[in-house]
C-alpha cells in the first residue's frame, strides 16, 4: 500500500489520474473501518487532509459551496441558517468524534443508501462539483446516486465541493435508528419547503438501493398546496392531504429486510416521518409567514 499526500487540489487530481483505483481518505470514518477490518486493501490511499480548501465553505447568493471535507460539526455550528436540513442531518451523524472528522464528500463518495446527508441534499437541491485532470463538472444530486454504494463519479474524478441551494423556507430531517444516539439509519427522511418556487422536495434514506426522492408524493403535495391556496392562505394542511403524502412517500420506498430493520417497518416509518416533518415545516412556514404579515 502506498500513502499519497497531495498538497494541493491539482496534485490530488494528477495522482488520481495516475492511480484511478486510489482510495481518497479525508475524515476516514468509512475508509479506515474497512481497512481496520480487512475489508479493503487499496494499492494507494490518498490523504486529502492537506488540501485546506476542502475544509472551507462559501455562502453565495443562491447556494452554499461546501468543501467536500467540511466536518459535520462545522455544518451544525455555522450553516444552520443557510442549510437547516443538512445541519439537522449532520447532528444525527454517529457521534461528536465522528462529526468532527466526517464530511459530506465522504458520504457522497461512499454513496451508501444509509448516508445521513443524502436525504437533506436531495430535499434542498444540490450539485456535486467533481474534478479531474480533464476539468470539472457539476453533477445534479438527482443524477448522482447510481446504485448501491455507486455514484456518477468517473474513475479519475474526485469530489471537490457540493453546491447546496440555500434554504428559502423551513427544512426538516428525521432519522430512525434503534438507539438514541450513534446509530446507522434504519431509514431517514428529509423535507424542504421552497416557498419561492412553491414546491416541496423530499429525500429518503436507507429505504431503497439508493437515496431517492419521493417524486410522486412531491407532485401530489405541490398540486394539493396549489389547489388549496395553502401557500397564500396559511391554513394548516388538512389531515387527508398529509396522510396521502405520507402514503406516497412510503410507496416511494423500495427497501430490503436486513439486520437493522424489516422492509415493512421502513415503509411504515418513512410514512410517519413524512407526515411529521411536513407538519413541522408547514407550521413553521405558517408562523414565519404570519410574522412577516404575509397572511
Amino acid at each position: 500500500m502506498d500513502f499519497l499526500r497531495p498538497a494541493s487540489w491539482e496534485e490530488a487530481l494528477a495522482a488520481k489520474a495516475a492511480h484511478p483505483a486510489a482510495v481518497p481518505i479525508a475524515g476516514g470514518t468509512d475508509v479506515m473501518v474497512e481497512i481496520n477490518f480487512d475489508h479493503r486493501r487499496p494499492e494507494h490511499l490518498m490523504d486529502l487532509n492537506r488540501i485546506g480548501e476542502l475544509g472551507e465553505w462559501e455562502v453565495g447568493e443562491e447556494s452554499v459551496r461546501l468543501g467536500a471535507a467540511v466536518p459535520y460539526t462545522a455544518i451544525m455550528e455555522h450553516l444552520r441558517g443557510e442549510l437547516p436540513g443538512l445541519a439537522l442531518a449532520s447532528h444525527t451523524v454517529a457521534s461528536p468524534q465522528i462529526r468532527n472528522r466526517g464530511g459530506v464528500g465522504g458520504n457522497l463518495g461512499t454513496a451508501s443508501p444509509a448516508g445521513d446527508a443524502h436525504p437533506a441534499l436531495l430535499a434542498a437541491g444540490a450539485e456535486v462539483e467533481a474534478g479531474s485532470v480533464r476539468g470539472s463538472r457539476l453533477i445534479p444530486i438527482d443524477a448522482f446516486y447510481t446504485g448501491v454504494k455507486r455514484n456518477a463519479l468517473a474513475a479519475d474524478e474526485l469530489i471537490r465541493a457540493v453546491h447546496i441551494r440555500k434554504a428559502d423556507g423551513p427544512q426538516q430531517y428525521s432519522k430512525v435508528g434503534t438507539r438514541n444516539a450513534m446509530v446507522i439509519a434504519v431509514c431517514a427522511f428529509g423535507l424542504a419547503l421552497h416557498p419561492a418556487s412553491r414546491t416541496v422536495r423530499t429525500g429518503i434514506g436507507s429505504a431503497a438501493p439508493t437515496p431517492v426522492r419521493a417524486r410522486t408524493a412531491e407532485e401530489f403535495l405541490n398540486a394539493a398546496l396549489d389547489e388549496g391556496g395553502f401557500w397564500d392562505n396559511g391554513r394548516s394542511i388538512t389531515p387527508s392531504v398529509a396522510q396521502r403524502f405520507a402514503e406516497l412517500c412510503s410507496a416511494a420506498c423500495n427497501p430490503v429486510d436486513d439486520v437493522r430493520g424489516t422492509a415493512g417497518y421502513r415503509r411504515h416509518a418513512v410514512g410517519v416521518l413524512a407526515r411529521r416533518t411536513l407538519a413541522w415545516t408547514w407550521e413553521s412556514y405558517r408562523g414565519t409567514a404570519a410574522a412577516e404579515g404575509g397572511v
Binding site: 439537522l88 447532528h91 444525527t92 426538516q172 430531517y173 428525521s174 432519522k175 430512525v176 435508528g177 438507539r179 438514541n180 444516539a181 446509530v183 410517519v272 416521518l273 411529521r276 407538519a279 413541522w280
Partner: peptide
C-alpha cells in the same frame, strides 16, 4: 429531542 424517543435523530417532538 434528547429527552424523547429517537433522541438526536429528531423523530418526534412529542407526537405519538
Amino acid at each position: 429531542v434528547r429527552e424523547l424517543p429517537g433522541g438526536l435523530s429528531n423523530t418526534t417532538h412529542g407526537e405519538g
